[in-house]
Amino acid sequence: MGRGSRPAGVAGRLPQPEETSTTTVVPPARGPAEAGADRSHRRKSPYPYWFYVPAAVIYTALFVVPTFASFYFSLTRWTLDSSQFIGLDNYTEFFRDPQLVKGLINTFIYAVLTSGAKVVLGMALGVLLTSQVVGRGYLRSVVFFPVLVSTVGVGITFQALLNPFSGMVNDTLRWAHLPAPGWLTDPSLSLYSVAFVDIWKGVGLATVIYMAGIVSIPAEYREAARVDGANAWASFRRITLPLLWPATSTVIILSFIGGLRSFELIWAMTRGGPGFSSDVIASVIYKQYQAGFYGLSTAGNVILFVIVTALVVPLSRWLARKEVEL
């Protein structure tokens, strides 16, 4: 081998940059089937569902079991230590009793009247208390305060205020030389007097719901309407009212359910009287329990549950569908 010759293995190589010994190992790509199987395996882990168990046990013990027990006992004539199966006799007796039918009719009147008034007054107060009215914070507190007061306390207070002989309301009317009716003793006025007190007590919650809905409406919508020349009424009708539909749906559902299940205020103010003029289904059921007709009163509870469910579920679905259309 001559001085200028190179080894055979190196003869054809050109000078190369410095080579590093570090190598990166890329894992093989996983197919979609394998990735999906892994995710499915993670989703099927039962661990998260164990957190539902305490709530499910409480719900079953306090709602499901009593509900099915009520359905059974409504078909019996029962006392605290015995029961006799009588089929649908309790339901037949329920619809034959004029007192129970009167209470059912009064319940619908009371629920429609109170829920409708709370929607209208709550919306009006919500618009007022979100405007630049003087003393806005104080007025908000005044409107919401009745919601915080005990229902029984409100009933006893207004029972004294509406007393036909010594109540402050009638004393004021007599002083002004105006008629002083028997608000709670006149059969034609007693139910509406209690409904008025219910509206006074519950309109604060409806107002708060409407205030939250009005505040959530973007200000740009009103500004655009103002630029287009819309007055306050047109802005309310075209912008505020449609966008308040979720709040309106909430107020309608809550007020209607509360009206159908009303009991405490009526019992505190009139006990269903005079006669049966202000009885609602809940007060009639309570009287039946007091008289010892447990099976009949249980059937009344079942009927009230069915009525509330049959009315509220379609109503809520209709309101939700109306919201989507708007």
Rank of each mutant, 00 (worst) to 15 (best):
S283C: 04
P242Q: 08
N106G: 10
A247L: 05
S131C: 05
R77A: 11
G122R: 14
S45I: 02
T92I: 08
A195I: 09
G126R: 14
Q16W: 14
L265V: 03
R96M: 06
L162G: 00
T22N: 03
V227F: 00
Y52A: 13
S141L: 07
L315K: 09
T60V: 11
N170E: 01
F196G: 15
R39G: 05
E93G: 15
L296W: 02
N106Q: 03
G103S: 11
E93T: 08
L304H: 02
V133L: 13
F51W: 14
D279Y: 01
V152D: 08
V313H: 03
A282H: 05
T22Q: 12
M269D: 12
E223D: 04
G116K: 12
A230G: 02
A291I: 03
R77P: 01
V284H: 03
V133E: 02
D228F: 00
P54N: 10
P48D: 01
W233Q: 09
S262G: 03
P46K: 03
A225D: 00
L265P: 08
R39T: 06
G4W: 10
I86A: 01
Y52W: 13
G167N: 02
W233F: 13
Q132S: 11
T60Q: 07
V324S: 08
K102F: 09
Y289M: 05
G87C: 01
F63S: 15
S283G: 06
A206M: 13
F73W: 06
G103E: 12
